[in-house]
Amino acid sequence: MTLNRRGFLIATPLVLAGCATNATVPLLPATAPPTADPHYLSMYAAVPGEPFPVDAIDLSRIVDPKYLRREVAYAGSERPGTVVVDPNEKFAYLVLEQGRAIRYGVGVGKVESFNFQGEAVIAWKQKWPRWTPTQDMIGRDPERYGPLRNGLAGGPRNPLGPRALYLHRNGRDTLYRLHGTIEPWTIGTKVSSGCIRLLNQDIIDLYDRVPEGSKAVVLPIKSQAVA
């Protein structure tokens, strides 16, 4: 995968951010993943030692195999330690040394205006974070989000999952996060209210690899060609 971010640093309004969805579980997967591969079975097994359950991912039903975590060749220009999100391909990359990166599948905003673009700093990391719907989310769906305006504590029902990385720009919270999910079947889709969601095992892996102060880059959405 070759990424080219030349000329993309576009400031966009920081509105409509959020991390919830109404997605439903598909009955059948689009592609059968490598369910018998011990490497992936171990990678996506239940995570011990957590205050709340982090269940194993059922790879036979809910994840296209291309979105499973792997190390790949990387030809982008970002420095090692940078997190690069490509919402077009629905991947996040942790840039490594010597032209390599760890690639994670992600779910992104369901409409283009929901997506953050440009550079940010991972200013804060949180385990089992509290989730609070934004005012935009409450305004769009007051019946659903209004009762949660004071927030939801971390736990198995929290849409942020077991970890969250908070994106700031110019010292201010953008309201966008990289986080886990209680809907693993949505990875590889346009589903969220703007945040970048990863499988819970993947956000735990990324959380452990990147320190606070790390750079994050979210590439712009490519315009769809008009016939």
Rank of each mutant, 00 (worst) to 15 (best):
I138F: 08
T174D: 09
L152M: 15
V83Q: 00
E89Y: 01
H179S: 05
Q117I: 13
V191H: 08
K215T: 13
T189M: 14
G155D: 09
L198T: 01
K190F: 13
Y104E: 02
G118A: 11
D136W: 10
P87Y: 12
R130V: 11
A92Y: 10
L206G: 02
Y93D: 06
R103G: 00
P211W: 00
G107W: 01
L152P: 01
G188N: 08
A216P: 02
L148H: 08
D141L: 04
D136I: 00
P211F: 00
S113Y: 11
D136G: 09
E97K: 15
P156C: 02
V85D: 03
G151P: 02
S192Q: 06
T186F: 00
R163H: 03
G188W: 09
Y207C: 09
L94T: 03
N170Q: 15
G105R: 01
N158P: 07
R100T: 11
A216D: 01
G105V: 07
G118H: 06
I196Y: 04
T134P: 07
G155K: 08
S193L: 15
N170S: 15
L148G: 05
V111D: 13
P147T: 14
G194H: 12
P220H: 06
N200R: 01
L199R: 03
N150V: 00
G139W: 12
G151I: 12
C195S: 12
E112H: 10
T181S: 08
L178S: 01
P156R: 12
W131F: 02
T174I: 05
V106M: 09
V218K: 06
A101D: 03
E212A: 13
I196V: 15
G99P: 05
R100V: 07
L167E: 06
K215R: 15
V83Y: 01
V210G: 04
T134R: 10
R100I: 11
V106N: 05
E143N: 15
P129N: 00
P184A: 05
Y176I: 06
L199M: 00
D202L: 02
L152N: 05
R169Q: 15
V111I: 14
V108A: 07
W128Y: 06
E212F: 09
E183D: 12
V85I: 13
P159F: 13
T134S: 15
R157V: 14
I203L: 03
L94D: 06
G109S: 10
D205G: 01
E119C: 07
V108H: 03
A101H: 09
I138L: 12
V84A: 01
N115W: 11
E89S: 14
R149M: 14
Y93N: 03
R177G: 07
G155M: 09
N170R: 15
L219N: 08
R149D: 10
T82P: 05
T189E: 12
V191K: 07
L219S: 09
